[in-house]
Amino acid sequence: MKCVFSSAAWKFPFDEDATAPGDFTLADGSKASVPMMTNKAPMRYHEDDGYQAVEAPYEEDRLSMVLVLPSDLGEFEAGFDVSALSTLLVFQETRDVTITLPKFRVESRFDLIPPLKALGMTAPFSDADFSGIDGARSLSISAVVHEAFVDVSEAGTEAAAATAVAIDERASPAAAIRFDRPFVFFIRDNDARTILFVGRVADPSR
Rank of each mutant, 00 (worst) to 15 (best):
M1A: 12
C3W: 09
A8C: 09
A8N: 01
K11E: 14
K11A: 15
F12Q: 06
P13D: 03
D15F: 06
D15Q: 15
D17R: 08
D17L: 13
T19W: 08
A20S: 12
D23K: 08
T25S: 11
T25G: 08
A27C: 02
G29M: 14
K31V: 14
K31T: 14
V34N: 07
V34K: 08
N39L: 15
K40A: 09
K40W: 07
A41D: 02
P42G: 03
M43L: 13
D49L: 12
Y51F: 14
V54P: 00
Y58A: 05
Y58G: 02
Y58E: 02
E59P: 00
D61W: 05
V66M: 11
L67Q: 01
V68P: 00
V68A: 02
S71Q: 13
D72N: 14
E75Q: 09
E77F: 08
E77H: 04
F80H: 11
F80L: 10
F80E: 01
F80K: 10
V82L: 15
S83Y: 06
S86W: 09
L88E: 03
L89K: 08
L89I: 04
L89M: 13
F91G: 01
E93A: 13
T98V: 08
T98E: 15
P102W: 09
K103H: 12
V106G: 04
V106F: 03
F110P: 00
I113P: 00
P114Y: 03
K117Q: 12
K117H: 04
A118T: 04
L119R: 00
G120L: 12
M121W: 01
F125N: 04
F125D: 08
S126H: 10
F130H: 04
G132N: 02
I133W: 06
I133Y: 04
D134L: 15
A136T: 07
A136E: 09
A136L: 15
L139V: 06
S140V: 05
I141R: 00
I141H: 00
V144K: 06
V150G: 01
D151A: 10
D151M: 05
V152H: 06
V152F: 13
E154M: 12
E154P: 04
A160V: 10
A161L: 14
A161V: 14
A162C: 14
A162Y: 03
T163K: 02
T163G: 02
A164K: 07
V165L: 14
I167D: 08
D168N: 07
R170N: 04
P173N: 15
A174L: 03
A176E: 12
A176L: 10
I177K: 02
R181C: 05
R181T: 01
F183C: 13
F183W: 04
V184M: 07
F185T: 01
F185I: 08
F186R: 13
R188N: 14
N190K: 14
D191R: 15
A192S: 09
A192P: 01
R193C: 13
T194S: 10
F197D: 01
A202Q: 13
D203M: 09
D203T: 12
P204T: 07
P204E: 08
S205E: 07
